[in-house]
């Protein structure tokens, strides 16, 4: 039972990361990030279920969700600002700095 949930958590993490690494559209990168966070939710809630500590893990997850929404709001505000500057959502348009 633990292993099955963890395997799916690993898959979510991987799919999200894949989207992040290969995507070009800024919004799609953020969608990838959202998929990655599902792994965290799944592992916490499953752990709480197994231990009978659902109150605690739900507290964790609710805080996590609030943080995640805020992060998304700021990220999307950045996307809009970038769009105002370049007129495109392509991350390749954001390649002036050399890293």
């Amino acid at each position: 039972m633990v292993t099955t949930y963890l395997i799916f958590a690993g898959l979510f993490f991987f799919i999200g990361l894949y989207a992040l690494l290969t995507g070009r559209n800024m919004i799609r990168l953020l969608i990838g990030l959202e998929i990655m966070t599902k792994a965290v939710v799944l592992v916490f809630i499953m752990a709480g279920y197994l231990r009978g500590e659902e109150f605690l893990t739900q507290s964790y997850i609710i805080t996590f969700i609030v943080v995640e929404v805020t992060l998304m709001a700021v990220a999307l505000a950045l996307v809009i600002t970038a769009y105002r500057n370049t007129g495109s959502l392509d991350v390749r348009g954001l390649a002036r700095l050399k890293g």
Partner: peptide, 8 residues
Amino acid sequence: VEAAFKYL
């Protein structure tokens, strides 16, 4: 904005 997005 580019730097901030990468950083984020």
